[in-house]
Amino acid sequence: MYIQYNMDQLCLPMDLEEDIPAGHLVRIVNDAVNRLDDNIFAAAYPGGGRDSYHPKMLTKVIVYAYTQRIYSSRQIARAVRENIMFMWLAARQQPDFRTINRFRSERMKDVLETVFTAILGFLVEEKYVKLEHYSGVGSVQAVL
């Protein structure tokens, strides 16, 4: 009569890969950031000290958060703990809101424009977005 339901027999950790549809925006963000040159991050991470979260992972999480209109570091950190798409991007790592805030406001402050320009170039190249100029002002029209 009912599908088997027993909270004591959950198979965790589950594989998030199968829950992310092909062509989903989160996969596009993942591909776009993976294409970024690692040298972009080298100046922000000179080495030494304890190990840091990978800058590409944090970049993916932040870029995807912005596409979802999530800008608060606390809300991004919450999404990484609670949202399957964010969990997948972060490979189940859970940076806290301070780490996210420091990453974008201190570590990556000088290269964020380069990162976003490179990602936009990838999206245009792969025909995910079109750049159209109206009256000399550029606008981006998503075709997703």
Rank of each mutant, 00 (worst) to 15 (best):
V115N: 01
M7Y: 15
A65H: 05
L144A: 05
M87R: 13
D38H: 12
K130A: 05
A91C: 12
R104Q: 11
R69I: 09
A91T: 10
P13Y: 09
L144R: 08
H24M: 12
S139K: 13
D15R: 08
F116C: 11
Y64N: 09
V63W: 02
I20M: 15
M7D: 15
D110R: 11
V129T: 07
G121Q: 05
M87T: 02
M14V: 09
F41Y: 14
N101A: 07
L36E: 03
D110F: 06
K60A: 04
K109A: 13
I76L: 06
V61A: 07
I40A: 01
P55Q: 00
L10S: 07
Q75I: 03
S73V: 03
S72I: 11
Q75G: 00
T114C: 00
R102Y: 04
S139R: 13
I76P: 00
R81H: 08
N39E: 10
D51R: 12
V63T: 07
A32H: 03
V124T: 09
I20L: 12
A91R: 14
Q93I: 01
Q141P: 00
F103H: 02
K109E: 09
L112K: 06
T59F: 05
R104I: 08
H54M: 02
Q9H: 15
I84H: 08
N34A: 11
M85C: 06
E17H: 11
V80C: 12
I76S: 02
D51P: 10
L112Y: 09
A43Y: 10
V26R: 07
S135M: 10
Q9M: 15
F122L: 01
N39Q: 11
I40V: 13
R81K: 14
Q94M: 15
S139G: 08
M87G: 07
F41G: 02
A22S: 14
V124R: 09
E106K: 11
V63G: 01
V29N: 02
G23D: 12
Y66I: 07
M1D: 14
V26L: 07
L123F: 09
I84V: 14
E17P: 01
R107D: 13
M7R: 15
N6G: 12
F122I: 05
A79R: 10
T117R: 06
I84N: 10
Q94T: 15
L131Y: 00
W88I: 03
K56P: 03
G136Q: 05
D31N: 12
V29Y: 04
D19T: 10
A32F: 06
M108H: 04
M7K: 15
E125C: 00
E17R: 13
F103Q: 01
P21H: 13
E82V: 07
L36T: 04
V29K: 02
E18S: 08
E113R: 04
A142S: 14
P46V: 08
A22N: 13
F103L: 02
N101F: 03
V115W: 01
Q68W: 06
E132I: 09
V29L: 05
E113P: 02
Y64A: 10
H54L: 05
Q93S: 11
V111R: 07
H54N: 14
R35I: 01
Q93K: 10
N30L: 08
R81E: 14
A118P: 00
R81F: 05
E113K: 07
V111N: 06
Y5L: 15
Y66E: 03
P55D: 00
M7P: 15
S73I: 01
F97S: 02
F122C: 03
V129M: 05
S52K: 09
